[in-house]
Amino acid sequence: MSETYLVNKLRDGSVLDHLRAGTALRALGALNLPPERTISVGIYLKSGRLERKDIIKIDSHQLTEEDAAKIALISPHATLSLIRNFKVVNKIELHPPLRFRGLIRCPNHACITRAESVRGSWLVMEREPVSVKCEYCDRTVPSDLFRFG
């Protein structure tokens, strides 16, 4: 028997699909979302491409590049689809960059970025799962310790 999910198609909004199973709630917490939006979250859904996956549908809100960059760090290879008038107007697979600024806070309390108003600067060391290195204090941070700021 095939499984079906009782989630309506979006008229306008954003869909994060093929999230690594178990990462949806972390992904949701990392996003900058306006209040009072309808959000559907599927966790541990059966998937053709992945054995299991998570999915997030956000009604009436277009995710930004910054949101997409955060999701790429949590769940590389997830896809982001932007929907307008029931049509997918843009669909991209998310990949972590080689290097980036901001997005996460260094967990090292002795790092200068915790004391000065400076954005973190990060080198991506491992791509799946992602780990990054702070270019100020050289601390390597695995993805489960990311704190999005």
């Binding site: 002795a110 790092c111 200068i112 100020y136 204090c137």
Partner: peptide
Amino acid sequence: LEGAARLAAEVAQIPVVNCGDG
């Protein structure tokens, strides 16, 4: 604090030598 010399080097137009950062 760790990384202080890196930050100073980014800000300064003159060379910076790290004499110990945390």
